[in-house]
Simulated scan of single mutants.
Amino acid sequence: MIRRFGEPVKPGQRYRLRPGVYAVLQLGGDILATHQAQPIPEYQLPGGGIDKGEHPIAALHREVFEETGWRIAIQRRIGAFRRFTYMPEYDKWAEKLCTVYLARPVRRHGPPLEAGHSAVWMSVEQAMLSLGNEGDRAMLARATGYPR
């Protein structure tokens, strides 16, 4: 069973499955997060949706690069969680199936390519306070051993 985080399922609402991959990017004692300015300003674990026909690992590399400008080395899968949410940027209700990996930032190539995103280094403690959704915080705690 995959744990659900966030708002409860709305009775009668149809949700479209949206698989995605995300990364806890740890270097030393810090975490590389992304800040998304739109539609709602929020700190997040870098990552996103898997395009049709795309391998999940390829999607993770692509999404992290687009949102942070960094190339990564994947270390291991941490876990997965589900969120039922409205995605205003796509105007759809989604059941987000989020698979999270522990990875190490290897090389910065430049600023994020994705408009409205900025890469932000922060301590694990600050990330636990700042990440915008409970599932991201749970995966960060699992990856780092930080108490929840």
Rank of each mutant, 00 (worst) to 15 (best):
W121K: 05
S123P: 14
D91I: 01
E89M: 11
G116R: 09
E95G: 01
V100R: 08
K92P: 00
G110R: 10
A73S: 08
A127K: 04
L113T: 03
E95F: 03
L140K: 09
V124L: 13
K96R: 14
Y90I: 08
K96Y: 10
R76V: 01
K96I: 15
L113A: 05
V106P: 00
A73M: 02
W93S: 09
L113K: 12
V120E: 12
A127N: 03
R104Y: 04
V124I: 15
P105S: 04
A115E: 13
G135E: 06
Q126F: 05
G116W: 13
R71C: 01
W93F: 14
H117L: 11
F84Y: 15
H117G: 04
W93Q: 07
R104D: 01
M122W: 07
I72M: 01
A73V: 07
R71W: 01
A94N: 07
L140R: 09
P112F: 07
N133T: 06
D136N: 08
L102Y: 01
R107N: 05
R137C: 08
T144F: 12
S130E: 09
E95K: 03
T85S: 12
I74V: 15
R82H: 11
P112R: 09
P88G: 10
R82T: 14
G132Q: 06
E134L: 10
G79R: 08
R137H: 10
V124M: 11
P112L: 09
W93N: 11
A94P: 04
E125T: 15
G135Y: 06
A80V: 08
G79F: 05
W93V: 04
Q75Y: 00
L129V: 05
E114V: 04
A80L: 05
A103C: 03
Q75C: 03
E134N: 08
T99Q: 11
A143E: 10
G116P: 11
A138P: 02
S130Y: 05
R76S: 12
R83V: 14
A80N: 09
V120M: 01
R107K: 11
R76A: 11
K92E: 15
P105R: 02
M87Q: 13
L97S: 12
R142T: 10
R83N: 09
R107A: 13
A103M: 03
E89R: 13
I74N: 02
A103W: 01
A143W: 08
E134S: 13
E125G: 15
R76G: 03
G132S: 14
P105V: 13
D136K: 00
A141P: 13
F81P: 01
A73H: 03
P88C: 09
S123L: 12
V124N: 10
W121D: 02
M87K: 07
A103F: 01
P111Q: 14
D136I: 06
I72H: 00
Y90L: 14
V106K: 00
E89D: 15
A94G: 04
E134C: 02
A141I: 08
R82F: 04
Y86K: 00
D136V: 09
A103Y: 00
L102I: 04
R107F: 07
K92C: 14
L140C: 13
A141G: 10
A138H: 09
R104Q: 06
G116Y: 11
Y90Q: 13
R71N: 04
I74R: 00
